[in-house]
Design a protein around this nucleic acid. Structure first.
Lengths: 170, 170
DNA sequence: GAAGACCGTTGCATTATGCAAAGAAAATGC
DNA sequence: GCATTTTCTTTGCATAATGCAACGGTCTTC
């Protein structure tokens, strides 16, 4: 537990305490989720780094796009995206080609192998989650679905102006 | 949404579908949580990288320890931990000293500044979560606390033998 | 007291990253 | 129609994170 300021002083008897409990619960759950994400990668990836995987996932979910868009969505410098593309291309995960309409652009797309890699990691992640979910008391599950949806919706885009593009890509 | 194999074919009418819905809901919620973690760092950190922050968090939660332990908990090579410590020491976040009992060991500890940095980031993260939680329909909150606890407990240590030490440090 | 185990350190290589400048290509302005 | 500006990619340069392997102190053990 990296940082756990326990429920602290329960100033407001009921509602206040519940809220802090919830904050703590979310914080705790987030550690589990992050660990799962990291693990699901390590098993499929080998030789593939996390940033590289993020790029593959992006291409998988949004389809082929230019280097600029790629860098934008990943929130990295174009030069960084450029070099990652080089390595991924060398690894046979993506292909690049210049667009005839606009010869400045370089479009990157997943190869078969790249797509398989992404699909594999995703499935593995779902399996891990599924395993945990199955270990939960059944009566808790129903409530969790709705609650999590409400949570994700409420936290979709808090205050950030223009940041819907793949927070961290996983 | 990096990878979202929508609920796919709901083969089993009720229970099966619910379970897949839950898996998807968790997957979605995990993106929000990871984004929060990343954001809470970026605002406090400046000039501080994520791995460096993880090290600070570790020292904050478990107290001073040797370089070996540090590397072990962070799951990195001692040489990596070594160099990170150098940079953090240069930044005034940690101090190092040799132990008299065993002059091989180098103990690292947080400085006042280091502790403040960790506390600040944690508080910011809690605030973000709190804000989202407050945006949720009140009726969903109660269920979420219990459900999340059940989830975190079920997923605490799935199959990994000895891995309770800070999944990813945040 | 010598062998072996443990610990930190340093050298070497690769990846990720950002900033800045250069080069090529398209869009705009007049 | 041509010059200016904008957009995109690429390359140079610097720093951080990382792992592996080798080295040199410092215990521990027999």
């Amino acid at each position: 537990m990296p940082d756990d300021h326990s429920p602290s002083t329960p100033d407001v008897p009921n509602q206040g305490g519940l809220e802090e409990d919830l904050v703590t619960a979310v914080l705790t759950a987030s550690r589990v989720l992050v660990a799962i994400s990291a693990r699901s990668l390590g098993e499929v990836a080998e030789s593939l780094t996390l940033p590289q995987f993020r790029m593959l996932v992006l291409l998988h979910s949004r389809g082929a796009m230019s280097l600029s868009r790629l860098a934008e969505h990943l929130a990295v410098n174009p030069s960084t995206a450029m070099r990652m593309l080089e390595r991924l291309a060398a690894a046979g995960m993506v292909v690049r080609d210049t667009r005839p309409e606009d010869r400045r652009e370089v479009r990157a797309a997943l190869t078969e192998q790249g797509a398989r890699t992404v699909a594999g990691a995703t499935e593995r992640r779902r399996e891990e989650i599924r395993r945990i979910v199955q270990a939960m008391p059944a009566r808790q599950r129903t409530g969790l679905v709705q609650a999590l949806r409400a949570f994700a919706e409420a936290g979709a885009e808090p205050a950030a102006p223009h940041r819907q593009p793949e927070p961290l890509g996983w």
